[in-house]
């Protein structure tokens, strides 16, 4: 092709999710991903503990009488000290109940993007689409992250999480299709036509909703539920185990809520482009990982009547990093 174009080789993609933060950057022809849990745990301060953490190079902060361990290591320390990990973010945005949430996100972002200053590198970072009636909260979240990244020396640009999934996974259909990211706090959805978002929305039912729901129903800690969900849960077959049964029930609830919202969006959208062929739908995010999820989702999808035909429902090539990949594609294309 003769079209001239330039790419910014130092651009970054950043997925700031409720449960994980993922950075993507190009290394020659490949993409390198760095990921950390977006979580922390506080433990009582002691010089001995601080010394061990320093020696082991475990990311931590010392505040007053507490040590805060953050990122991937937080889970190990939570188990060690029999505590629950905490989240700097809740339902897709900075957690208003955690005073130092922005500072912790900043520390975790440093872990995945490197310690050095941003040096004006362009970064596209994911933000959730606003859940119904919560526009202001999302705007505030977006502004906070933008300011944080600017102060770190980057050139930040927000991108809707669902659109990032489209950019990360739908090159083959010229970025036309439906991208869905089911993460910890929210399920984000975007319908894109030739790379332009037609609509984006989110619903507050995702991984945390499932964990908390099952936790309350079965009287088990949410952390244990999450561990079961991530390590052994699948949709195929029947379960004697009541936790597994409850997981199926809450997953089903999430899928139905997602599809109902999708149908509503189609009904309310104006200026819908004329789609002259069936479009693909891609599932990504940690909450779509259980084996059999795709089949269950597709079965429910086929039961509702959407005004567009879906050519295929497929899993993202790597559901855990597709948002970051899409954010990187957006950043590299210098939109």
């Amino acid at each position: 092709m003769s079209d001239t174009h330039t790419q910014n080789p130092t651009a970054l993609g950043l997925d700031v999710g409720t449960s994980r933060i993922v950075a993507a950057q190009r290394q020659d022809k490949d993409i390198q991903f760095d990921t950390q849990l977006n979580a922390f745990v506080t433990i009582p301060f002691s010089k001995l503990t601080q010394g061990v953490l320093k020696k082991e190079q475990i990311p931590h902060l010392v505040q007053d009488s507490e040590i805060t361990v953050y990122g991937d290591e937080s889970e190990r320390f939570a188990n060690l000290f029999h505590r629950e990990t905490r989240r700097p973010m809740l339902r897709g945005i900075l957690n208003p109940d955690e005073a130092g949430s922005l500072m912790l996100v900043r520390q975790i972002v440093r872990l995945v993007m490197g310690e050095g200053e941003g040096q004006g590198r362009r970064v596209c970072f994911s933000v959730p689409a606003a859940p119904l009636g919560a526009n202001n909260e999302v705007t505030e979240h977006e502004n906070s992250l933008k300011e944080m990244l600017s102060k770190m020396g980057y050139d930040p640009h927000p991108i809707s999480e669902g659109l990032a999934v489209v950019y990360g996974e739908m090159e083959a259909s010229n970025y036309t299709g439906i991208g869905i990211s089911c993460g910890g706090g929210l399920c984000n959805v975007c319908l894109s036509y030739l790379s332009v978002p037609v609509f984006s929305f989110s619903i507050p039912k995702a991984g945390d909703f499932i964990d908390e729901g099952v936790s309350q129903l079965r009287g088990e800690p949410a952390t244990r539920i999450r561990t079961i969900k991530e390590e052994s849960f699948h949709f195929n077959g029947h379960f004697a185990n009541k936790i597994q049964q409850a997981l199926v029930q809450f997953y089903e609830d999430m899928i139905q809520a997602l599809l109902a919202a999708l149908k509503d969006q189609f009904a309310s959208v104006q200026n819908m482009p004329k789609l002259n062929r069936p479009i693909p739908l891609v599932l990504s995010g940690g909450s779509v990982m259980p084996p059999g999820f795709r089949d269950r989702f597709e079965k429910s999808l086929r039961e509702i009547e959407l005004p567009v035909a879906i050519a295929e429902v497929r899993m993202a090539s790597n559901p855990m990093v597709s948002t970051a990949r899409g954010a990187l594609v957006a950043a590299l294309s210098e939109l």
Binding site: M1, D3, H5, Q7, Y167, E171, N174, Y175, L194, S195, V196, V329, A330, L332, S333, E334, L335
Partner: peptide, 23 residues
């Protein structure tokens, strides 16, 4: 025509860049 031309870019970044610029 736009779609057809976009498909000629094998690199996803180039393809997105082309589409967005034209649109």
């Amino acid at each position: 025509a736009l779609e057809w031309r976009a498909r000629r870019f094998s690199d996803p970044v180039d393809r997105l860049q082309f589409l967005r610029r034209n649109l």
